[in-house]
Design a protein around this nucleic acid. Sequence first.
DNA 1: GGGACCATGTAAATAGTTACATGATTAA
DNA 2: TTAATCATGTAACTATTTACATGGTCCC
Lengths: 180, 180
Amino acid sequence: MKTRYVLLGLLTEGPQTGYILKKLIDLRFKYFWNESYGQIYPELKKMLLEGWVDKHSSDQAKRTQISYSITEKGYEALKIWLQKPPETELYRLEILIKVYFSSHVDADCMIQHLTTFQKNHRDELDILEKFQEELLRIEDPFENHEDVLSVIDFGIKSNHAYLAWCQKLIERYRKEGTVK
Amino acid sequence: MKTRYVLLGLLTEGPQTGYILKKLIDLRFKYFWNESYGQIYPELKKMLLEGWVDKHSSDQAKRTQISYSITEKGYEALKIWLQKPPETELYRLEILIKVYFSSHVDADCMIQHLTTFQKNHRDELDILEKFQEELLRIEDPFENHEDVLSVIDFGIKSNHAYLAWCQKLIERYRKEGTVK
DNA sequence: GGGACCATGTAAATAGTTACATGATTAA
DNA sequence: TTAATCATGTAACTATTTACATGGTCCC
């Protein structure tokens, strides 16, 4: 049940709708976290019943919009969770399974997989570096830019590592390909 | 439905029991993949019905042991899967969520979380380096050591990156701690 | 005899994704 | 007017973990 804490964390910046919360998670946490509407909406309802959030329906502009704001109780719960030692570190890297068993397919196939991997992580790195620049430039209303930059730094450092690995491995498969 | 392919991959090295398959996954894939008995046993049964594996019950030594071996059909299915572009790259790094929202807790708390993270990844790095040394020393009956070493190399490179990040961040929180 | 580990499995709970339904608004 | 996007939500499905039940063997 981590979803709720992610939502609460975002709500500390102000009331939001489920829809926007999803967008925020996609935008900011894309590279290390994800949530779907099927989790977000029910979770907000549950937290409402528990008094962790308040609901503000506004039918202004005739479009139904339901914002949630964090309550004192919710904020306390968030702080308690933040202080608990992190448990989950879930990686599931299909590419590594495929490399592990790659002796059963030909080198070209692996080169293709790795080229895609490389492209994805180059793009990721690009985006993270752009984010970084922007954060250093703009204002810091919630005084959390240092924290956000630390998370971005994680992404940049690990992507560099992934790319170095990938580069080396592509070369290995290329050599193999020419030999066989 | 990736479980089955991981099992099939391991079965290419020879028949195994569900119990041993679990041990192998824990040992070899620990850092990027995991499966539980609740997935392994039912999955082996399903593959049996589909003719992807064969079953060999041996009541030798009176202890019930059920080994499975990969069939021609199963091997074909494995090869097809290995050639498909990898989809899942699932990371769920609770530590990053906690860093992101760390302005709501004090620096000491974060230093503790990060110290644990650091210890875990140092241990991981140690183990991977030992594995690496050993693989370079011993024989290579399945001619897959290069592949295994590539996977280990991924682990070593990313752990170095994680540790560098962690070191830097601990220092940041230490400075903050003294200021506040 | 007891503890560690071998060995197989299932049931229930939890988690998470996907696909769908609904309808408003905006911009081309 | 039509496509995209805003916006909320649920049902069904799939995936995964956890806890438990069962019983054998090995070694001290």
